[in-house]
């Protein structure tokens, strides 16, 4: 996965009055991606993530995203009002927290509104692989819904829901009833919609591992790191400054802490926490492990903490 790099806006298409689709390309080869993947755009107002909507197997060195204008001064407003063909955008990724599982025998997609975007890459991908799927799409108005034309390609497999909340709930339940083994469910849309679908799968005893929601994100980077004090192995007292990590301090002091990624991913630099409050910023430790462990490369103490560093890894 590439760190930040520039792509060029090659095409902008008005999909609905509120939605624009952008084609971003590069002169050098762009990385392949999987259905359900997203790209992170680094915009003046911060980072924004958008699902890629092209077929991963037919990608020809471009990334396509669809953006709904939601607020007057956010990232979507910027993309809608200020971005023009030929402009450069700083991006990173693509990354994927919503991958398609190939062991599924049949896939049911539930989307609401702009939540359709990850399924725009999944549907053509599964079609290419010859896998069966259906889309249940909650929209305000069917004919003016996003990507209506595209969806007509799959007439037999697409079901629109446009009624009240109660009606939708009934339709979702009907769609999920009497499903066979090997069915996987993917859901993307506003929080309340996702909850409704997921709750229904629970009532109907779907194993949780076949129900996929686009929710998981890596832990956020600590925004305003503050200095903190650390007591190591009940003896040494160290001060970790705001611009350094606990790992860096420990290594400077000569503690033989193993480390590798320095990104909170690999778990090498784990230390034992004996006291104090810790802000965890890794994607490695389990909730249980966080009770008495921390990754010294990214996580930080609050005020004063006490840790144990094993002299050599006893393994």
């Amino acid at each position: 996965m590439k760190d930040r790099y520039q792509v060029k806006v090659e095409q902008i298409k008005q999909v609905t009055p509120q939605i624009k689709a952008f084609t971003l390309s590069s002169e050098t080869a762009v990385d392949p991606f999987g259905a359900g993947a997203h790209l992170t755009l680094h915009l003046p107002m911060g980072d924004r993530q958008y699902s890629l909507i092209n077929n991963p197997l037919e990608m020809t060195n471009d990334y396509q995203i669809a953006v709904k204008k939601v607020s007057a001064n956010g990232g979507s407003h910027y993309l809608h009002e200020h971005l023009e063909v030929g402009d450069s955008v700083l991006v990173s990724g693509p990354d994927n927290y919503f991958p398609v599982h190939l062991e599924a025998q049949h896939v049911i997609f539930f989307a609401a509104g702009i939540g359709i975007t990850p399924f725009l890459s999944m549907m053509p991908y599964l079609s290419t692989l010859g896998k069966t799927f259906e889309l249940h799409y909650a929209v305000k108005n069917v004919e003016s819904c996003p990507f209506y034309e595209e969806l007509l390609k799959y007439t037999e497999q697409v079901f629109f829901y446009s009624g009240s909340r109660e009606e939708k709930k009934k339709q979702v339940r009907e769609a999920l009833e009497n499903r066979k083994i090997g069915t996987h469910v993917y859901v993307c849309g506003p929080e309340t919609f996702m909850e409704m679908v997921v709750d229904t799968t629970r009532e109907l005893r779907f194993p949780s591992r076949v129900v996929h929601e686009e929710r998981f994100r890596p832990a956020a980077k600590i925004r305003n790191p503050k200095p903190f004090r650390v007591t190591v192995n009940g003896g040494d007292e160290l001060l970790v400054k705001e611009n350094e990590s606990l790992l860096e301090r420990l290594l400077d002091e000569g503690y033989p802490v193993s480390y590798a990624c320095r990104m909170g991913i690999c778990g090498s630099c784990e230390v034992t926490v004996c006291g104090g409050e810790v802000i965890h910023s890794d994607t490695f430790l389990t909730e249980k492990e966080k009770e008495n462990k921390m990754l010294s490369c990214v996580s930080r103490g609050v005020g004063e903490i006490a840790i144990n560093v094993v002299e050599t890894n006893s393994m």
């Binding site: 990385d31 392949p32 693509p94 990354d95 690999c266 778990g267 490695f284 389990t286 393994m315």
Partner: peptide, 23 residues
């Protein structure tokens, strides 16, 4: 037994490897 915990951690590490990334 000596490597059981290690293997469990490696598995967790692998599931967190991001696309297009090599370790």
């Amino acid at each position: 037994p000596a490597i059981a915990e290690f293997i469990e951690k490696v598995e967790r590490f692998i599931t967190r490897i991001r696309p297009n990334t090599a370790w």
